[in-house]
Amino acid sequence: MYVKNGTGVLKKVLLSKPEYLKATPINEIAKKWDLHLDIDKMLLEHELFVQAYLDNGVEVEFLDADADRPNSVFSRDFGGCIKEGYILGRFKEPIRYKEHVDYEAKMEELGIPVVARCEEGLFEGGDFAFLNENTIAIGMVARTNEQGIEEIKKAIEPLGYEVIPVRCKEEYLHLDMCFNLVDDTLAVAYKEGLPSEFVERLEKMGIEIIPVSEESIFAHGCNLQALGDKRVLSLKSNQYVNEELRKRGMKVIELDITEILKAGGGPHCMTFPLLRE
């Protein structure tokens, strides 16, 4: 048993440090910044991020940083983890191709089997979201396509999963930039950017949505990481969302991260869950 849902108690994660990260202009956020980010500041921010996990009982595994895969700090994107093993995705951007090889080798080292892989289509883990233990939403935004989703469905639907494609505007990059489940029946989302049938599905499942503006997508307002037991990692700058979460009984662990964000990813993007109870 590895990861059975998106909101159970998180016990183990796979991360990678931002030693070679640059604001490569491959998404709408990174296009606004200089390519050369403050490495020392990013490393300090990442240390605080790691410490937040350790303080909350989460074991941390690392893939060593590598200059040939500068974006591997966004470990979420190489695939998705389910209870039987993991799904190996396929990157759209050439700058990320080496991540396929190195993350697959790391998962083999950790003894976690591949249960599905994208060979022809595209899939990145920022588009992967459990809605419950048997229902998985996969965004079709900028870097996951229909062919990739079909390859995943063919592999995991026989295991009892329902896979729901969710098409969003390409500028939003990944589903986790505009929708995130933070507790069993609580999500943060830009509702107007999601397909109406998906929003209706969430409502039927009894999932309450804390609404955010379209602008908050690009400030990582939805890019939160659920820890389980009503705990969530968020950004210190995310004041409105954090207050709304607290009103609903959530414990919000605030991260003072700003520099890493300039490359286009937040706490959720930087986390690949390996074990949830």
Results as ranks from 00 to 15, higher is better:
121 G>P: 12
113 P>S: 12
173 L>W: 05
113 P>E: 09
129 A>D: 08
126 G>Y: 07
118 C>Q: 10
123 F>D: 14
161 Y>L: 01
113 P>K: 04
161 Y>F: 15
124 E>P: 10
173 L>S: 00
115 V>W: 08
151 E>T: 13
155 A>E: 13
114 V>I: 15
168 C>K: 10
179 F>T: 05
178 C>G: 00
146 E>D: 07
128 F>M: 09
129 A>Q: 14
177 M>T: 15
152 I>H: 05
154 K>R: 03
133 E>T: 08
116 A>I: 05
122 L>N: 05
132 N>D: 15
130 F>C: 03
171 E>G: 01
134 N>A: 09
177 M>A: 07
153 K>D: 05
133 E>Q: 09
162 E>H: 11
115 V>A: 12
126 G>M: 08
150 E>K: 15
143 R>W: 06
142 A>P: 06
167 R>H: 09
147 Q>M: 12
169 K>Y: 03
123 F>L: 15
133 E>F: 11
120 E>Y: 11
114 V>S: 05
153 K>W: 05
128 F>I: 13
150 E>Q: 15
135 T>P: 10
165 P>A: 07
149 I>P: 02
128 F>A: 14
139 G>I: 06
146 E>T: 13
138 I>Q: 02
169 K>M: 12
151 E>Q: 08
127 D>H: 03
162 E>G: 04
166 V>L: 05
158 P>H: 00
135 T>Q: 04
143 R>E: 08
152 I>F: 04
153 K>S: 11
144 T>E: 01
136 I>H: 00
126 G>E: 11
135 T>M: 09
174 H>Q: 13
180 N>L: 06
126 G>W: 12
146 E>F: 00
127 D>K: 02
166 V>H: 00
111 G>I: 15
173 L>G: 00
161 Y>M: 00
113 P>Q: 11
172 Y>N: 06
134 N>L: 09
117 R>T: 06
161 Y>P: 06
124 E>M: 11
142 A>L: 04
169 K>R: 05
166 V>A: 02
136 I>V: 15
125 G>T: 09
143 R>P: 03
118 C>V: 14
